[in-house]
């Protein structure tokens, strides 16, 4: 150690371990399940989020199909388009905030230092937190999809499952990288609420959750193309609603891989820097 501590010394990390990350995820899930109302919340409440938009859409379009919508989105089935968008958007938000919120929870609970003092990779802590969040989102999404399939008959076939999972996983991986950076910001600035609300609102407007990006103004459209979810949502809809095969969305897969690589490097470095900064200021366990 030299006379001054440098960031590069802190950059060195333990080897990541899948089983440690899974243990962290399982621990978080177990704690969540000790609050029984959580299960009700995950399974039921999200249905309420989407229903008003569906009822409003049916009232406006007079049904679940719209020729005007087809000219913009390539499919007249606006309802399936929107349901898929909403389900995938839940994943976007859970991937984005799972790490930051979990880190904040550990900080508030007083357990963060216990994690940081154990000889594990910081990636394990972050991915463990994100996996727990993704698992609860999967429960929510499955319930939402099953109910909407039964009520509105969304055309989800078994052949769609594999490409859906591939594209969803790639999108999640890309957002996990971005989420590491967000977790770093939470570690320094503590309260994530304002940033969460800001990004939630911006992403909800910019990525094609309820309408195609062709409806956006030019600048917003360009920004939308810088967000991995835009490619994932478009490709998943192409497979499920337009019956395209996986070769037809290969460009989206490549783009998502590039996003994943870039965002992981950016996210890891940002989090490591945040850890360095909080360790220099002594703010690791403070909340």
């Amino acid at each position: 150690m030299g006379s001054k501590v440098q960031f590069r010394y802190v950059l060195a990390d333990e080897k990541p371990s899948v089983s440690v990350a899974m243990s962290i995820a399982w621990k978080s899930l177990k704690i969540s399940l000790r609050y029984p109302f959580n299960i009700l919340y995950w399974a039921i409440v999200p249905i309420g989020w989407i229903m008003p938009a569906i009822f409003q859409g049916v009232a406006l379009a007079g049904g679940t199909m719209s020729a005007e919508f087809a000219s913009a989105a390539g499919t007249p089935d606006w309802l399936s388009y929107m349901v898929l968008g909403s389900v995938l958007y839940m994943y976007v938000m859970s991937a984005l905030w799972g790490m930051g919120n979990a880190l904040r929870w550990e900080q508030m609970s007083g357990t963060l230092e216990s994690l940081l003092v154990s000889p594990i990779s910081r990636i394990d802590i972050l991915i463990g937190a994100a996996l727990a969040e993704t698992a609860t989102t999967t429960l929510t999404a499955t319930v939402q999809l099953v109910i909407l399939l039964l009520i509105f008959g969304i055309p989800f076939a078994l052949s769609h499952v594999l490409p859906f999972i591939i594209l969803l996983t790639l999108m999640l991986l890309a957002f996990y990288g971005f989420a590491m950076a967000m977790a770093g910001i939470v570690m320094i600035f503590k309260d994530p609420d304002a940033l969460t609300q800001f990004l939630d609102t911006m992403f909800y407007v910019l990525i094609p959750v309820r309408y195609p990006i062709s409806e956006l103004p030019y600048v917003a459209k360009i920004i939308s193309l810088l967000i991995p979810a835009t490619y994932a949502l478009t490709a998943i809809r192409a497979i499920i609603l337009l019956n395209k095969n996986i070769q037809a969305v290969m460009d989206a897969i490549v783009i998502l891989c590039v996003f994943t690589l870039c965002l992981w490097i950016f996210g890891y470095l940002t989090f490591a820097y945040a850890e360095y900064r909080t360790k220099m200021t002594g703010g690791t366990g403070k909340y």
């Binding site: 150690m1 006379s3 501590v5 060195a12 003092v117 000889p119 360790k279 220099m280 002594g282």
Partner: peptide, 28 residues
């Protein structure tokens, strides 16, 4: 000594390992 705070200057060793450069070994 437990690698939760970084020093500004100086050195610290736990079981022979540097708390800054070999933090993982110190933690174990």
């Amino acid at each position: 000594l437990s690698t939760l705070i970084l020093p500004d200057e100086g050195e610290a060793y736990v079981d022979g390992y540097d708390v800054v450069r070999e933090a993982g070994k110190v933690r174990s």
